Structures are given as structure tokens and as C-alpha cells.
Amino acid sequence: MQDEPFKLIPSETFYNTLWAGQEIKNSGFWTVNAGSAEGMVIGGNFLTFNFMQGTPFAMRDDPTSPLIYILEDNGAESVYNVQNQLQLLILQPDFRNVRGILIGTFRRESNTTSDLLTKIIKTKEELRNVPVIANVDFGQTVPTVTLPIVGYMRIEAKDNSDEIFILKK
């Protein structure tokens, strides 16, 4: 592993699934909430991550460490169910340690747009000061980056110039 932070950059194009033949132009990262954050990476699929809350599989060794949530959806959920899953995560005790959120690229059939996702995030008072970057190349689209669960990350969410770094700790 390299000692320097590793910067993630958005792909220029992506495919809706591994088997899809149509290349889609990527609009880049979406800044939903501006700000900076650093913390331990935990998360996964919205629904699966919610199922793990309160169990020994919730990926938490230190209940005081700052967190960066990484969340994605497999396309089977409607955007309104994503809103509900997000609210369930906000209600969990660990959420008080969340310093930032990354959301993976949504598959086209979810009908999730930047404007719609921004509207959902902005309705959550608990997210008002949490930097959120969406349309990141992880989850169910191709290409996808593998993110280090319980690794460390720094995010800088700023309009049109978001930066995401995987850190060596």
C-alpha cells in the first residue's frame, strides 16, 4: 500500500450493469452538501447496512471514532425507499459520529437524479452540516471502485471540485 493518500476521480463513462452494452456519460461527482470530513469508512447497500445495525456485524470497534458512511442501492429500491433507509440510519445511535457521506452511482431504473437526491438530503435536519458527495463509482454500476471498509478516508465536498482520498492510517 502506498503511503500517500490515494485520490478517487470519477469515471468519464459508466455502464448501468456489467452486462449492459450502452455506455453512459458520467456527470461526475454530485456535491449535495459542502464541507470537509475525515473518518473510518463503514457502510454498504442501504438495506443491508440497516439490517446490520445493532448486531455484532455492524462494523464498529470504537464507538467514538468519526465515521464516513458509504451507501449504495442496487436499483431494486425506489428512490422513496432510499429516503426511508437513509432516515433509519440517521436514527441509529452511531449516526452521531458520522462526519461525511458518500453515495454510489444509482442505476438508471432507480430514477434518482441529482436534484431529487439533493431534495431528499436537504429534508434531513441531521444532515445539514454533514458533507455529502453522490454519484461516486461504487455500488452496482461499472466501473466500480472497491472502498476500504474500516479503512480511512478524507472528503472535501465543494461545488464542481469534490475530492475524495483514501488514507493510510
Rank of each mutant, 00 (worst) to 15 (best):
G39C: 04
D159T: 11
T146V: 14
I166G: 04
L127P: 05
G54K: 07
K168S: 12
P10I: 04
V32W: 02
R128P: 08
D3A: 14
G151I: 00
L102D: 06
N84A: 08
T144K: 13
P131V: 08
M52G: 12
G44C: 05
G21H: 04
N135T: 03
I101H: 04
R60W: 13
G54E: 01
A58K: 15
Q2H: 15
D61T: 15
V130R: 08
S36Q: 15
W19L: 13
N45Y: 12
N26H: 13
K169M: 00
N135E: 01
G21I: 00
P93S: 09
N129E: 15
A37P: 05
F138S: 04
V136T: 10
W30Q: 02
W30K: 07
W30S: 05
V82M: 00
D62P: 06
G44F: 05
V136P: 02
V130C: 04
T48E: 15
L127S: 11
L147A: 03
G28Q: 00
K158L: 13
F29S: 07
E38A: 12
V32M: 05
V145Y: 11
P63S: 10
Q53I: 11
K7I: 12
M59L: 09
T141Y: 05
G151M: 00
I90V: 07
G21A: 01
K25R: 09
N16K: 04
G104S: 05
A58G: 13
R108T: 14
D94G: 12
K158C: 10
K119I: 04
R96Q: 15
E12M: 11
A20F: 03
F95V: 03
L8A: 03
F57L: 13
T146A: 14
F49I: 02
F29K: 01
V132F: 06
A37Y: 06
D115P: 02
F46T: 02
N45D: 15
S11T: 03
E38G: 07
T105I: 12
V98T: 10
D159I: 04
N97R: 08
T31P: 04
N81G: 05
Y152W: 10
G75D: 06
T105W: 12
V98M: 02
T144I: 10
Y15R: 09
P93M: 08
Q83M: 02
F29L: 03
L8T: 05
L47E: 10
F95G: 02
L127Y: 07
D3N: 15
Q87V: 03
G54I: 09
Y15C: 06
K7C: 10
Q22R: 12
V130Y: 08
Y152R: 15
V79A: 11
A134K: 01
Q53G: 09
Y152S: 07
